[in-house]
Write a protein that binds this DNA or RNA. Structure first.
Lengths: 237, 237
DNA sequence: AAGTGGTCTAGACCACTTG
DNA sequence: AAGTGGTCTAGACCACTTT
């Protein structure tokens, strides 16, 4: 196996173990290269890939930092809803429910769990400009997020993914999403102040950590009368 | 400006000018490096980025090739509709209409045209497993695609993007997409064999070439009773 | 065997940020 | 001025494909 890949996975391990903390600077490149016993070019090759995945962040003249799942990154990487006019806004989030239950078939499949496994179920409503726009239902493995509490969830200082990262060492690095249109069911219709059956967008997102390990399933029901779901795949400039 | 970026743009220019043909091999890396007067590392840095954008394709031991907009690449990079079971299939495409008209406000804005500019309007129905699933309306600038004919469009051997690439030197390298749910209008409902008002997915895609120059606006109306629109953002393994 | 891309080295110098 | 990442060089050797 290529050397730079080993270095990359050692860096990932150091992040997951908490040796390198989110937001903190790594040692400089020459020191890291010496520590891993590789040349600077090889060390940079490894760091390059982690920077491309938003796991690390380089700033010329300042240093290399462990990426934080803060509001900025959440908005830019995972929150893909914006107004039809293109305006983006940080949503106001209200927690509706927090339970545990046996995983449904869809949850077990998405999260890679056995049929009998238990999951946390969390329900949120997200508002933009004071109006409810998204109804989120989240499922998390009780094994991966052991001892998660409602209080922890409600009183978190930052984003949900920041909580995953700081309290459970789970760094979300990507997501697979599947979208379809459907008529709003009774529950979503009430929450989003719509007539039942109104066309809404349903997005199922499986967020995953390193090696595509699934970490979270989220079903978002979106009122697209004034907002849209955006997705972009663009070349480097 | 960094040297490798200049090299990258010289390579792009050579592809756009037709000096390097789609599907053909480039000269080997040492020769390219000499030709551009840079070291092999710098040449590789430039090629690395073009490979990441799927513009070039490297195969160890064989060479470096100009990426072709063939069926495989189309399916993998731009056709994001698959069955709920995850099955992907190449669609059967039927041309419904081919016209020119003054650009609408939405078309002019998406394609970066003045209000009075003319566009080609093309309408397709895409079928999967013999059933109509997607109603596509495409708008192209008459300036960028000068002298495009209906016959050219109907009798193209490969994908639409392959036609853009071979006949007009337009290499599509990315796309921005915006999705929302709406009730099917009369035209789409008939084509997709739905009741009018049935929830359907509406995806507006602006495909662009190098430097994010817009090349195509496509409005897709998708019947998501058996299919979904997929979108993935994942870290390198 | 010859030719290709893939990896790795050990430096040099530049551009930027901070004290 | 000192410390950081960003770019570039000129080579060596490896892994893979083709002839």
């Amino acid at each position: 196996m290529a050397l730079y890949r080993q270095v990359k996975h050692e860096l990932i391990a150091d992040i997951q173990s908490g040796k390198f903390q989110p937001g903190k600077a790594l040692p400089n490149e020459t020191e890291l290269a010496q520590r891993f016993g590789v040349s600077i070019g090889t060390l940079r090759h490894a760091v390059d890939e982690l920077v491309a995945d938003h796991v690390l962040l380089r700033q010329q003249g300042r240093g290399t930092f462990v990426g934080q799942q803060d509001n900025d990154r959440f908005m830019y990487q995972f929150f893909k809803i914006e107004g039809r006019d293109g305006l983006r806004e940080f949503p106001q989030i209200r927690l509706l429910a927090f339970d545990t239950a046996r995983a449904s078939a869809e949850e077990a499949q998405a999260l890679g769990l056995r049929g009998a496994a238990r999951v946390f179920r969390i329900e949120n409503v997200l508002s933009l400009q004071g109006r409810p726009v998204v109804h989120d239902r989240i499922a998390l493995s009780c094994t991966l997020f052991a001892r998660l509490t409602r209080a922890q969830f409600e009183q978190r200082p930052g984003t949900i993914y920041e909580l995953y990262q700081r309290a459970f060492g789970v760094t979300v690095v990507g997501a697979d999403e599947r979208a379809r249109a459907e008529g709003a069911d009774a529950a979503s219709a009430t929450l989003l102040q719509l007539a039942e059956g109104t066309p809404v967008l349903r997005v199922a997102r499986v967020a995953h950590t390193f090696d595509r390990q699934p970490a979270e399933l989220r079903i978002s029901i979106i009122d697209t009368r004034a907002h849209e779901f955006v997705s972009s795949a663009s070349a480097t400039p």
